[in-house]
Amino acid sequence: MSDKTYDKQHPAFFALLAALIFMAVGPIVLMFVNSFKLDVDIISGTGGLLFLPTIQNYETALCDVLWYELDHMDFCSLKFGGAFANSLVIALVSTFLTLVLGCMAAYALVRFKFMGRDTASLTTLMVRMVPPAVLLVPVFGLWNNEFCIGKTTMVGELIRDMFGGRGDICLAGTHSGIILIYVAMNLPFVIWILQSFIVQVPHSLEEAARMDGANPFQIFFLVVLPIIKPGLAAAAIFTFRIAWNEYLLASALSDRDTKTVPILIVNNMSEFNVEWGVIMATGMLLAIPPIIFTLLASRQIITGMTAGAVKG
């Protein structure tokens, strides 16, 4: 990169660049700054950057996981720590499952000719456009009434032991219920993106592995997967982003114990008197993981985005 030469540009271009960067990042920075202000400072609005930064908002937000008592409040009403843990479990597990299932399916669609391949590929493409709102009604109905396992059966107990949840062992209200719909929702997208990466893997490599006596699974896991790592990274980030940020389906499916962070934020926003400082601190905490991913892996994200759109 360092020996790359750059064209000389008119200064106006750099002004435009600066303005664009300011517009893109401004609101985020504003929220970041405000999350360190007391509500009094936010409302009086004295001097943009002249204020005494305080972590009180973050303390209030995280009150259920802090190890020390807070002076400024007597009762911890915001269960942010628990919601954060729920979000993390749901996002990580569903990302992992989506990736594993998605790359296997993408491989099958790209490399094999089999009966039903066209149907599978077309269906995958079609369901990609289904909005979460459309899934709301059936998922609510099914997860509450039909996808239930008798309390006494072995599978039912196993699920309850693994993921928690209380009462009936219906999918609604459990982590696994939310994970299931997230995996299903993200699979078409992941398959779509990964297909365009798998196509680029040279056939000769797989042939060589086959000559050496590797079976299809060894070829897939030991030869193909390592090559498409960048694609996997992109797909992982996109899946994580959706599972981490989604609100609607999680709000329909979760109960008191399985609430995720977006639900918490929306619930606190709809109150009459919004506590801006605290809510911005929670928003910032929710935004930090995706921001970190973006800064670390922007190249992969951009590749994934273009691969998904251009290859159709």
């Binding site: 271009f13 609100y247 934020i265 929710l286 935004a287 995706p290 973006t294």
Partner: peptide, 28 residues
């Protein structure tokens, strides 16, 4: 164009897309 800082611009540009819609709504 071949300008310095293009990759930074692109990185910062994808930030708004990656942040939770709930948080975007909150900011606005």
């Amino acid at each position: 164009r071949n300008i310095r800082g293009m990759s930074i611009l692109r990185t910062l540009f994808i930030l708004p897309m990656m942040i939770a819609p709930v948080v975007v709504g909150l900011m606005w």
